[in-house]
Structures are given as C-alpha cells and as structure tokens.
C-alpha cells in the first residue's frame, strides 16, 4: 500500500523554525513506522534524525508522537493506524534538538530524583534474600518500565509544569517502595509528597494509555498517593 508520511523537521544548524516534510512511500501493512523512517532516511533524505536501537519495543529509544499519540515507532505497525496518512512528531514537553530527537536530560533528572535503586544496608545473607511469590508480584508491573518517556510526555500536568516529576519517575519509585527488600520507602514517599510530586497527577489516564509496556501507570501513582496518605506501604 501507498502511505503518506508527514514528518516534523527541525535542524538547529539551518532552520529558524520547524516545518513538516512529506514523503510518499510503498509500505507493507505489517511494516513498523520505524521501518518507514529508516526507508526515508536511507533513500530520500539522510539528514532525517531519530533515535532507535532494538527495533522491537524493549530499549525505549524511539518514543514519538504518531498521529497524535505517543508510541514507540518500532511497535506501531502501519495496519494498526487504520489510515494511510501518518504524521510523525517528537514527543511533547522536552526540548527538540533535531527532528524527532528531544533532550531527554530533564526526564532522566526526574528519574534520578526518586532514588531509583535498592536501598538496604543490612548485610545480605550468603545466598539470595528470600522473597515470596506474592511479595515479588506486588511490584511486578512497575519493573517493566523501559524509560521511553511515552507516559511523562503525554501528561498535561507535565506539559503545564515541567518541574512535576512525572509518571515515569513515580513508576520507578513505586518499583522500589513496594519491594519487600527495600528500606527507603518512607524517604521516597517524602520526596513524592513535595509540591511537584504525586499530587500533580489528576488521574487523566493519558500515561496509562501511552505506555507501550502496558503498565498500569495511573494505578501505580494511586498506590503511591495512598501510601503517602495512610503512611502505610501495603
């Protein structure tokens, strides 16, 4: 099938303002949007710039806005778009560097702010620490995060105020707060109780809809809110 691609372009070395370029390409319904971008870059315009690596939805490199929704280009098949018109733009809320590449640093700074690592100073046993299947299950969903930023950059509260830590950082905090082996849950809850913490979330559910790993992001945020409110991690 023939598809019409319209791609956001901005090269800071030559452009004063962003613009859109259009390309018509022959596509297979099972092609990934990433395949089309590679094709355009390889055949029409080598300057087209975007990040990618794994090409199967695991590394989190290629979050972009595809027909207005945050998606991984490598996980979005042409046939699923239900149209032959494909609009590709960078994710919102982070500064555009070039074409589809945005500056991820503010996103990662938020991630780092929630102590995203296991904290437990008790000397570990000789073998593994024990954890029941139920305890492990408690935080399973939030271990799936690949830090692609689809959720955070789909969140109106984040667009409104980029000091908000955003859903991805709360997901990272959740993963440790509810891990039975961790000892710094209270500390993280204190961080997230800040004016730019969880209460900026107005349960709009954009994040959950955007997550390519199908993490129940809004639910995780809700659990963190409840833990702050009750002072209990359950």
């Amino acid at each position: 099938m023939q598809v019409k691609l319209k791609i956001f372009r901005y090269n800071p070395e030559v452009d004063k303002k962003p613009h859109y370029d259009k390309y018509e390409v022959e596509a297979d319904p099972t092609d990934r949007v990433l395949d089309l971008l590679e094709y355009v870059k390889g055949n029409f315009d080598g300057t087209l710039s975007f990040r990618r690596s794994c090409a199967h939805g695991i590394c989190g490199s290629d979050a972009m806005r595809i027909n207005g929704r945050n998606r991984l280009a490598c996980k979005m098949l042409v046939k699923e778009l239900g149209t032959d018109k494909i609009l590709v733009e960078p994710i919102l809320g982070l500064p555009v560097i070039k074409d589809l590449i945005v500056d991820m640093e503010p996103f990662f700074a938020n991630y780092r702010s929630v102590l995203p690592y296991l904290i437990n100073d008790e000397p570990p046993p000789k073998k593994e620490r024990l954890q029941s299947i139920e305890e492990r299950e408690r935080f399973d969903d939030t271990t799936k995060c690949i830090l692609c930023a689809c959720c955070t950059t789909s969140c109106p509260s984040y667009w409104a105020n980029e000091q908000y830590v955003g859903p991805a950082a709360i997901v990272a905090a959740h993963r440790f707060i509810f891990d039975s082996r961790d000892r710094a849950g209270a500390e993280r809850l204190r961080i997230l109780n800040d004016q730019f913490g969880v209460y900026r979330c107005h349960t709009i559910f954009n994040c959950t809809e955007a997550c390519p790993r199908e993490i129940q992001v809004t639910k995780a945020i809700g659990e963190v809110k409840r833990a702050i409110a009750t002072g209990k991690i359950e």
């Binding site: 570990p124 593994e128 024990l130 029941s132 492990r136 993963r175």
Partner: peptide, 19 residues
C-alpha cells in the same frame, strides 16, 4: 547471581522464596 539479587534484581521466585 546472588550478588545481582543483593543489588536488587527482581528475580522471579520459587514457592519457598528463592530465585
């Protein structure tokens, strides 16, 4: 592997809580 577990790696678990 035990060291990875101590670093926090969320291994799946057996019924008795082991890796």
């Amino acid at each position: 592997v035990y060291e990875l577990e101590h670093y926090g790696l969320p291994f799946s678990r057996t019924a008795d809580g082991r890796i």
